[in-house]
Every structure is written in structure tokens, then in C-alpha cells.
């Protein structure tokens, strides 16, 4: 499998050497989701490994976001199986699902990248509050992560006053603060220009490689898909590996 890696404007190709030993993080099989009489997903199957980045592409209304919500345990499928880190995730109750999300998942959304009226530091700190991490430890981890996304100098800045690119970096930091195994991103580059898109994807790639995080990105943008190890095309409610 070839892996496309870009840093800034430099593009180079690498070959993964140990794919067979990579841990399987998520496996969804034959996922079905209906909205009334409309069949959004008609048996989607998808696998995500640690350190791999998968793109889900397809036309508007094809069920990309629905699939992401199901994978993120935010919506229940009507049929199918879904396992994550060796557990049957569909058998969890709401509280267990919330706990699983808190421990293993990170989310990045197209809009609402940041919480309004909160500082950058508070935004990134949020997930750790739900996990009950002590404040001192939280702040240390937040500052480490903000340094890694070059936002340490803006820790006390009001997050809604940042540029779109900076807001997405805040969102990435917030998604990564809980050391998730899986990052789920819905159109993360939707509001970014070409240069910022490349920077963001380069950052995702680093996260993927350095931290062995599995990333699923829902996108329209072929440029984003170029960075991913696997690209799923959703057509007629089914996923095809491109």
C-alpha cells in the first residue's frame, strides 16, 4: 500500500512495510440505516487500523455523515455489526457508549470547530474535564498539545476570534487531548483554503504515524483523499474501496 505524505508543499511517496502487524481498531460490517422509507446505508462495511487514515467520499446526501455518526456511536444503525478494540459496540448502553467515546474517540467537525466565549486553553481542556483529570495535569497536557499545533502563544486568546485555520488546529488539539485511538473528522477542511488544507492534512498524517491513531475523514475533497491510506466511495448506500 502506498502512502502519500506531504509536508508543506513537498510531496513524497512512502511504502508501508508492516501492514500485516497493524492493530485493527474498528470493524463495521453490513451497516444499514433507514430514515423512514429512505435507505441511507444499505450494508456498508469498513475497517480501520491503527496508524491508518481512511477517507469516506461520495456525493451530498449519500450517507457519509450518517456513517460517521454510527461509527462514532452517536447514532444506532438499523442492522449490521460493529466492533471496536475487541468489543461489540452496538451492545453498549448510552452511558457505556459515552464512556467509550470519551476514552477512545476524538471528534472534529466542519463548523463549530470551537466553543464560543471560551479561550483556546479552555476549548482544548474540555474533554479532560469529562474524564475527571485533575486541573494541574490538564493544563500541562493542554500546553504540550498547543505547542505541537503552534498555538501555545494563543492559549488565553478567545477562540472565536481566531482565523479558520487556527480554529481547526484548536479542534484538532481538543480531539487529541484525550489520547484517542480513533479520530473521526467530518469535512475538517471544508472552510479552509488550499494552503491551510495541506497544512492540516500534513498534521493529521503526523498524528497518524507518530501516535498510531486511526483516522476516518468524511470529505468531498480529492486533495484530502490523496493523503489517506484507504478511500471508501459511498454509492447507493454501499461503500466501495477506491
Amino acid at each position: 500500500m502506498s502512502r502519500l505524505r506531504r509536508t508543506g508543499m513537498t510531496v513524497r511517496y512512502m511504502t508501508a512495510s508492516a501492514d500485516t502487524a497493524v492493530e485493527e481498531l474498528l470493524t463495521a460490517a453490513d451497516i444499514v440505516k433507514n430514515y423512514g422509507s429512505y435507505q441511507a446505508l444499505r450494508g456498508v462495511s469498513l475497517t480501520l487500523h491503527a496508524g491508518r487514515m481512511a477517507a469516506v467520499m461520495g456525493p451530498s446526501g449519500c450517507g457519509k455523515s450518517t456513517l460517521l455518526l454510527i461509527l462514532g456511536l452517536l447514532q444506532k444503525p438499523d442492522a449490521g455489526t460493529y466492533t471496536g478494540l475487541g468489543r461489540d459496540l452496538l451492545s453498549l448502553d448510552a452511558r457505556e457508549q459515552a464512556l467509550f467515546r470519551r476514552r477512545f474517540f476524538g471528534f472534529i467537525l466542519q463548523s463549530c470547530a470551537v466553543f464560543s466565549y471560551s479561550t483556546v486553553e479552555e476549548n482544548v481542556e474540555f474533554p479532560l474535564m469529562y474524564s475527571g483529570v485533575p486541573r494541574r495535569e490538564r493544563l500541562a497536557r493542554v500546553m504540550d498539545l498547543l505547542e505541537s499545533v503552534n498555538l501555545a502563544g494563543k492559549a488565553q486568546a478567545r477562540s472565536n476570534l481566531l482565523s479558520g485555520g487556527e480554529q481547526q488546529r484548536v479542534a484538532i488539539a481538543r480531539a487529541l487531548i484525550g489520547n484517542p485511538r480513533v479520530l473521526l473528522a467530518d469535512e475538517p477542511t471544508g472552510q479552509l483554503d488550499g494552503e491551510n488544507t495541506q497544512k492540516l492534512m500534513a498534521h493529521f498524517r503526523r498524528v497518524c504515524d507518530d501516535l498510531a491513531v486511526g483516522i476516518i475523514i468524511v470529505t468531498h475533497d480529492p486533495q484530502v483523499a490523496d493523503y489517506c491510506d484507504t478511500v471508501y466511495q459511498l454509492r447507493d448506500g454501499r461503500a466501495i474501496v477506491a
Binding site: L74, L99, F105, C112, F126, P127, Y130, G178
Partner: peptide
């Protein structure tokens, strides 16, 4: 929605 997704109850 995002807070709930992050694990808020």
C-alpha cells in the same frame, strides 16, 4: 452535540 460526542453526559 459536540460536547455529547466528546463524552459529556
Amino acid at each position: 452535540g459536540l460536547q455529547l460526542a466528546m463524552g459529556a453526559e
